[in-house]
Computed example of a mutant assay.
Amino acid sequence: MDGLAHDSKQRILAAAEEIFATKGLHGARVDEIAEKAQINKRMLYHYFHSKNDLYAEVLKINFERMWDVTSQATKDRNNPQVQLVEAIKSYFYFLKENPNFPRLMTWEALEGGIYAKKVLPPIWDAAFPQLRAIIDEGKSKGVFRDDLDSRQILTSIHVLCISSFTQKDILAILWKDNPTRPENLEKRLEHILSLTLRSILAN
């Protein structure tokens, strides 16, 4: 793919991500995506056969981006507690810096995960063993409780982190404050880390 074609495709993906995150798959229109990408609709269909294919590609790219950021944060193989803390922090900051991701996940969950079923399994099949290995190593070294269920721990971490962003408007009503202010996000992350570690550490 030459430079011009690559640029066109990237503009389509960026425009599509923004519109899908705002309106969901069914609310988004191809005409609107093409207009935002400053490209004609025929060219869009040259790269993506349908709106559904484009949506699936946007999801795939976001999942890959999230895992790439998280996996880079878990390089310290000698300290499972540090690895897990860094993984949580990297995921939380990824959500903070990529506001479209939580919105896309909300829309996809409302649709029953139809397209996530198509694009997420290969990514998760690579990610889960690495994350489980951190927990297993912590258990074997006596750092983490030996009765921990990796799936339950990772699910809890995911929900604690992503709900801080998907529920931000409701939280703003409850707190009478903006939960995404930097100081509030740092407090939220500190609480997630404290809650997680207190529930999994052996001592």
Rank of each mutant, 00 (worst) to 15 (best):
R11I: 09
L13V: 12
E18S: 10
F20S: 05
T22P: 00
G24D: 10
G24R: 07
L25N: 08
A28V: 04
R29W: 04
V30N: 05
E32K: 10
E35L: 08
A37I: 07
A37D: 06
Q38C: 11
N40M: 05
K41I: 08
M43L: 14
H46T: 08
S50F: 10
Y55M: 01
L59G: 11
K60V: 13
I61D: 14
F63L: 05
M66P: 01
T70F: 02
T74H: 00
D76N: 12
N78A: 03
V82F: 00
F92T: 03
F92E: 00
L95S: 09
W107T: 07
L110W: 08
Y115V: 02
K117A: 15
V119K: 09
P122V: 13
P122T: 14
I123S: 04
A126S: 11
A127V: 15
P129L: 06
L131G: 01
R132N: 06
R132P: 02
I135F: 06
I135H: 01
D136H: 10
D136P: 01
K141R: 13
D147G: 01
R151W: 10
V159H: 04
L160E: 14
I162R: 00
L171M: 14
K176P: 03
H191V: 07
L195W: 05
L195T: 13
T196P: 04
S199H: 06
L201E: 12
N203Q: 14
